[in-house]
Amino acid sequence: MSTVVNIVIYGIIMGGVYGLISMGLTLQYGVGKILNVSHGEFLMLSAMTSCVLVKAGVHPLLTFVICLPAAFIVGFILNMTLYRWLRNFSKDEATFESNAMLMSFGLYFILANIGLKIWGTLSKSYQFYSYPVKILGATIIVNRLIGLGIAIVFIIAFFIFLNKTRLGKAIRATSQSTTAAAMMGVRINKTMAICFGTGGLLAAAAGILIGMSFSPTAQIGLTNTVIALIVVVLGGMGSIPGAVLGGLLIGLVGQAVSFFDTSLVTVAYYLMIIILLLIRPKGLLGR
């Protein structure tokens, strides 16, 4: 019984974090048509920076105030410069999409090596509510529960932002049709840059949660990008609710398989993707 409770609770916890990472990636792709391979590096930089800040005496929750705006600004500037130029140079949307992905590979190498140069390969960690509580017989570490709570707050806030604010409506309009949105007065470049920045911000938030609960290294970026890609494909490219649902599923499956054979987790992920691509290629909530 406790094993099942463990799987469900930790599955939901990991699902929340995966959902957060994937929402950012799917937003960047859905609106800007940028499959951002460097997405996980934003997470890594944030996770490592937050650990360093906490070690320097900053409260873990305060690191959100520092890392999130920084990630947003970096993402915003990258989009307003590199990706905007690339968009101007690309003869059509398909060319831009492939060029943008190549550019994000370049960014991945740059950011990953910056992380390695600064922190090497050793882990960083700190203790924050690092003690267990018993829930229905399962041993759950409190900081994981705090992480889940924060992830849920971010997810809800993001949904409200998308659905209730003027900017959110502009983002949704841009994701449906750039041309039509532009004709309605939406400032496309700025909207895309905000989406890219927000994607970075969400990855940074996930990074801080990972730093709070685990021992991140400068090498975790690519792993999390791959997980986010799996989640996004599972949930449906460009679908925000799909990213949350996909994150939850991956979290639950990952934990369930971990309890039986940890080494088969990645196999299980890809098996899910293969099955899904065969029966529903657009993903669970893809359009």
Binding site: N6, F214, G254, S258, T262, T266
Partner: peptide, 10 residues
């Protein structure tokens, strides 16, 4: 152990 860096709780 898992292939990738992951939650070690299990």
């Amino acid at each position: 152990a898992p292939w990738d860096f992951a939650d070690m709780t299990p």
